[in-house]
Design a protein around this nucleic acid. Sequence first.
DNA 1: CATGAATGAGGGTTCATTCAT
DNA 2: CATGAATGAACCCTCATTCAT
Lengths: 231, 231, 231, 231
Amino acid sequence: MPVPRGQDHRSRVARERRQRTRTLLIESALTVYAAQGLQGSVIDRVIETAGVSRGTFYNYFRDGEALLAALALEVSDQVLGIVDPAVRTHEDPAARIATGVRLVLAVAGAHPQLAAFMVRGGVRAIGRQGLAVDYLVRDLSAGIASGAFDGVDLRVAVDLVTGSVLAGCDTLLAAEAPRGYAGALAAMLLMALGVPATRARSVALRPLPEPDIPRDSLFVRAATLAASPAR
Amino acid sequence: MPVPRGQDHRSRVARERRQRTRTLLIESALTVYAAQGLQGSVIDRVIETAGVSRGTFYNYFRDGEALLAALALEVSDQVLGIVDPAVRTHEDPAARIATGVRLVLAVAGAHPQLAAFMVRGGVRAIGRQGLAVDYLVRDLSAGIASGAFDGVDLRVAVDLVTGSVLAGCDTLLAAEAPRGYAGALAAMLLMALGVPATRARSVALRPLPEPDIPRDSLFVRAATLAASPAR
Amino acid sequence: MPVPRGQDHRSRVARERRQRTRTLLIESALTVYAAQGLQGSVIDRVIETAGVSRGTFYNYFRDGEALLAALALEVSDQVLGIVDPAVRTHEDPAARIATGVRLVLAVAGAHPQLAAFMVRGGVRAIGRQGLAVDYLVRDLSAGIASGAFDGVDLRVAVDLVTGSVLAGCDTLLAAEAPRGYAGALAAMLLMALGVPATRARSVALRPLPEPDIPRDSLFVRAATLAASPAR
Amino acid sequence: MPVPRGQDHRSRVARERRQRTRTLLIESALTVYAAQGLQGSVIDRVIETAGVSRGTFYNYFRDGEALLAALALEVSDQVLGIVDPAVRTHEDPAARIATGVRLVLAVAGAHPQLAAFMVRGGVRAIGRQGLAVDYLVRDLSAGIASGAFDGVDLRVAVDLVTGSVLAGCDTLLAAEAPRGYAGALAAMLLMALGVPATRARSVALRPLPEPDIPRDSLFVRAATLAASPAR
DNA sequence: CATGAATGAGGGTTCATTCAT
DNA sequence: CATGAATGAACCCTCATTCAT
C-alpha cells in the first residue's frame, strides 16, 4: 500500500491554489479597472469581484500599484501572445504594421474590457517601455532601414501609431466605429509611412485571420467574471 | 430711475474682483493638474497655490468637478483663440490641418503645463465634444468634400489626428521630441489623408508664424504661478 | 462709529480656538496613555475622549507619534515647572536632589495619570534626553564637584535616581506605598550618594511645601477629562 | 499489561521533538522581543526566525500572550539559575544583594537580548510577582531582621534595587556603561541600605566569579538564532 | 464674501487567528 | 502534528465638503 508522498503532494496543491488565486485577482483587477479606470476604491472592488477577503489581497500584492503592475504585465503578455505570431507570418514591414494594428483593434473590439483598460489609463501603466512598443519599434525600424518607409522619423512614427490605436480603442469602446474601421485606420497609417495609397489599401484590407484568443485567456475569464462576480 | 453712481462703481469693482479671483483659481488648477494629474489633494493644492482660503474656493466653484470643467473650457478656448486665427488664414484644408496640428504642438511645447494637462486627463475633461474637435471636423469635412482627402473616413481621420497629437504632447513633455517633430508629424498626417508626399512636406514644413500667445494668457500666468505660488 | 477690526478679531479668535483644541487633544492623550499605555488604538480613544472627529486629530498632529512627542514635551515642561522652582530654593545639592525626588513623587502620587504615563512608557518618549534628566545631572554634578557626593560616578547616580523614581511611581500607582514612602526613598538615595544617614534623613524628611499645581494644569484637566469625556 | 517497546520509543521521541520545537519558539520569541519590543508583527517574525509554519506555532501556544508568558517564565528561571547559586555561597545579606545585582547586570551585559527584553517590557511580563523579586525580598528581609540594613523599609528597598537594576540594563544596552559600572551600582545600593561606605565598596567590588552561563542556555541559543535564523 | 476649524465617509494596510489539506 | 492560504476585525490616514464666525 503505497503512501502518497504527502510532503510533495501538499506543497504542489498549495502552489496551485496560490497560482489560481493570484490569477483570479488579476482577472478581477482587469474587470475593475476597465469599469472605472484608475480612480476610486480599486482594492475594495477587486476583492468583491474576486469573492476574496481583504487580507487575501494583501497576501498577494503589496498594494494597489503592485496589482496594476502585474495586470499591465499580464495584459501586455497576452496581447502580444495573440498578435505577434500573426505578425511574424509576414516579412514585409508594411504588412507587419498593418496586421499588428488591425489585430490589436480586433482584440480590443472583441474584448471591451481590454479597450477600456487601455483607454482608462492602463497604457500609462504599461508605459512607453511596454513590450508592445518594442515590437512596434522593431517593425518600424526594419521598414525604415529597408527604405519601405522612406524619410520617416522613428519617434514620430511610433507616436502616430500608438496614438491612433489608442484613440481607436476609445472609438471602439463607444461603439461608434464604422464597418472596416480597423482596416481603414491601418491603411491610413501605412500611407502616413509613405506606402502608396493603392498598396496601403490592398495590404491593410486583405482578409485577416481571426485572432486566436485562447478560451482561458485573461480577457475571456475577466469577461465571465464581470458578468457574474465570484460569490 | 437713476442709480447712484457709488452703487454702480462699487458693484463694478466687486464684479471685477470676483472675476480676478475666479481666474486665479483656474490658473492654479492648471498648475496643479499639470503637476500631479487628478490624484492627491487637488483642492488643497489649488487654494494653496492661489493663496486663498478653503471657504473662498467653494464660493466660486460648487465642487472640484466644476473647477475641472471650467478649466477645461478655458483651456479649450484659449488654445483655439491662439490656433484658429492662424488656421483661418488658409483656405486649403491640408494647410489648415497642418497649421492647426503644428500650432497646438507649438503651444504645448512652449507650455509644458498645457501638455501635461492634456496628457494627464484633461482631454477626457474637454471630451470628444470639445470645441477643438469641432474645428478639426470642420476642416477635415471640407477636405473630404473637396476631394483633397480622397476616400477618407471622417471618423478614422479624427482619431488619427487627435490620437497622434495627444501622443505628441506626451513626447514633448518627456522632452524627447527631435527637432522638427511637429512638422514631421503634420506631414505624415497629411500623407495619411492622401496628400502626396512632396506636397505634404512642403505644406507641413513651410515656415510657421510664431503662435501669438497673449502675455496674460492662462498658460503664461499659470507658469508664473507654478514658479512662485501666491502668498 | 468705529468699525471692529474684523480681520484681526477673526484671526485672533481662530488662533485661540486652535490652541484650545490642541490642548484638549494633548490632555486626552495623557488620559489615554495613562489608561492603556502605548498599545492599542490610541488615536481612536483620544478623539473619543476629546469629543472630536478623526479629521480634526490629523489637522493637529501628523500621526500618533507626533502626539506622543507633544505630550511628552508638555508633561516634561509642566512637571519641571512645578518641581524646579522649589528645588532652586535650596543651594545644597543633597537638599536639591531630595526635594526633586520627593516632589516628583508627590505630583505623581496626586496625579495617577502622570504616574501611569511615566510607567507605561512615557518615560521612553521623554527619553534620556528629557529635560528632567538635565536638571538631575545639574544637581548631581554640583554635588560631585563640591565633594558632597564623594566618589560617585555620575552615570551610575543618574540611573540610580531615575530608576528608583520610576519604580516608585509604579508603587504609588498600585497604591501600595506606605506612609512616608517618598521621604524614605529620597533618604536612601542620599545615603547611596554618600550622605551620612542622619543627615540624609534629616534633609529628606524635613517638611516639604505642598507642590503648587496650577488649577488648569495638564494633570488637573486630564483628570477631569478622564472622569467625564467630552461628549 | 506490557506496553510494546516500539510504542514507548515512538512516544518518547515524539515528546522530545515536541519539547525541542517549543524551546525553539521561545528562543525565537526572545530574539524578536529583544529586537522590536511588542510592536509590529510579533508572531510572523517568531515563526520566521524559528523556521516554522504558522500553524505549528498555534500547536504549541494558544496565542501570543501565552508565548510571552512562557518566555518570561523561562527567562526568569534561567537568570535565577545562573545568579542564585552564586548568591547562596554568601551568608551575609549585603554580599548577597551585591552579588545578585552584579551578576544580573553581568548576564545582561553579556547578553544584550536579555537586557533588551527586560527593558522593552519583559519586566512587565515577569511582573512584580516574578521569582526574582521573591529572592530579593528574601535577602533584604534577612538583612533588615539581622540589623544589617537598619531602619530600611522593605518596600522602598525593593523599588530602589529593582528600579536601579532596570535602569542599569538600559545603560548597558546603550553601551554607555563605564568600566566597573555594575560594582559601583551595587556599592551605592548597599550604602543606601545603610552599609558604611568602606564596607559597601569592599563587598561590592570584590572579585566576582564569572557567571556560569550554560552553553545551551536560552540566551546563548537566542543569540545564535538572531545571527542566523533557522531556514 | 473671506476665513479656516471641523467633519466623516472613504480607502488603505496590518496581523493575530482559523482551518482545510 | 505540520503546513500555509484565507480570514476579517482593527487601525491608520486622507481629503472633499460644510459652516460658524
